[in-house]
């Protein structure tokens, strides 16, 4: 391994390592919230869900490199989630108004 090799690899692995650190930090926050629940708030699940969404987005955009893909692939990555929203929202429309 030459010096230049190390520089290449540091450069290439910067983004994966940053993702890794960010994901672990977010997971840590979520675990803390889950275990200690620092304040008794009924709707704490909203924060937890928000953090989970952030983690999913990090994986999608950086780990799966959506940021580098052409628009059409980004579109189809989004379509899957959009359809998930359709399924959830219309089904819950029934359950929440029964």
């Amino acid at each position: 391994m030459t010096h230049e090799d190390w520089r290449t690899i540091r450069h290439r692995l910067r983004s994966p390592v940053l993702c890794f650190v960010a994901l672990l930090l977010l997971l840590g926050v979520n675990v803390l919230l889950g275990v200690y629940a620092p304040f008794r708030w009924r709707n704490i699940w909203m924060i937890e869900a928000g953090i989970a969404v952030a983690m999913v987005l990090i994986v999608l955009v950086f780990s799966m490199e959506l940021v580098r893909e052409p628009p059409v692939i980004r579109l189809f990555a989004g379509v899957g989630f959009y359809w998930l929203v359709i399924l959830f929202s219309l089904t819950l429309l029934d359950y929440l108004t029964r």
């Binding site: 994901l23 919230l33 889950g34 629940a37 989970a52 983690m55 994986v59 999608l60 799966m64």
Partner: peptide, 22 residues
């Protein structure tokens, strides 16, 4: 891509099953 996606699914499973309901 497939591997990251399995990871992504678990990242969603963990809160949905273990965390949010506590």
């Amino acid at each position: 891509l497939y591997w990251h996606f399995i990871d992504l699914i678990w990242i969603s499973v963990f809160p949905i099953l273990y965390l949010l309901n506590r």
